[in-house]
């Protein structure tokens, strides 16, 4: 698959098979196109004027997501996303989690209540927050906010969860919690995570893809890639000879 912003090519010749219900990590130096690749999967790049996939296709559940009959809202409902910086809406905690359901037309109060409880529990927030569901979300700590964002993303029961450096703005303890969460989520969801932190990739992922300058250099099970990289470039990156 090729991808470009206007005339500037951002990704070239990527071929990647993401395994079902596994955590796949995308690593690479800054500007290598990790985030762009991630954002292709739920077509968030459509928001950027001039951005398009110029060659190849992205198949999710066997369907090319750029086909004309693909409904963007349905695609994004099934491919959730968590952003680098936590961005809860300026609403209550409850409303934040319920938002995805509401925009997809769920009106049943009990269904929403259940979904809120389920997703907050999965995001390991339920015990902390069950008493103040109607407090303002912006009053939470950074780690809680990010987990709330994860809860919000999984409230619509997506099949795939995309995470764009979800821990980069957090302190180590909050990071640890999120990482535990990711491992747990992999039981129910297919997770694709972009990370800067190679230790994190080792800790959480089952597969790792290494990208460099918009090209896929190596894609392998995490253990294999980190202990025995096939490519020289991967090796030197892992050793830290360039970044």
């Amino acid at each position: 698959m090729d991808f470009c912003y206007g005339s500037k090519a951002a990704l070239q010749g990527i071929h990647l098979d993401v395994e079902y219900h596994r955590v796949t990590a995308l690593i690479g130096p800054s500007g290598c196109g990790k985030s762009t690749l991630l954002r292709c999967i739920n077509r968030m790049n459509d928001r950027v004027a001039g951005a398009r996939v110029s060659k190849g296709e992205i198949l999710v559940k066997g369907k090319n997501i750029h086909d004309a009959d693909v409904d963007l809202t349905q695609l994004r409902k099934q491919v959730g996303m968590v952003f680098q910086k936590s961005n809860p809406f300026p609403k209550t905690i409850y409303e934040n989690v319920a938002y995805g359901l509401r925009v997809h037309g769920v009106k049943d109060k009990t269904a929403i209540d259940e979904a809120v409880e389920r997703s907050l529990t999965q995001a390991a927030l339920w015990d902390e927050l069950k008493d103040r569901l109607h407090a303002h979300a912006l009053g939470l700590s950074g780690g809680q906010q990010q987990r709330l964002c994860i809860a919000r993303a999984i409230a619509t029961m997506p099949d795939v969860l995309l995470m764009d450096e979800p821990c980069s703005a957090l302190d180590p303890i909050a990071t640890l919690k999120i990482e535990e969460l990711i491992t747990q989520l992999a039981r129910d969801y297919t997770v694709v995570i972009v990370t800067h932190n190679m230790q994190q990739a080792v800790r959480v992922s089952d597969f790792t893809a290494f990208l460099h300058l918009g090209k896929l250099v190596e894609f392998a099970p995490t253990e294999e890639l980190f202990t025995n990289p096939r490519e020289k470039l991967t090796d030197s990156y892992l050793r830290g000879t360039f970044s």
Partner: peptide
């Protein structure tokens, strides 16, 4: 980021 988050959830 609010708009991005909302659209990522499939909101129109």
């Amino acid at each position: 980021s609010y708009a991005a988050a909302s659209e990522a959830l499939g909101a129109t």
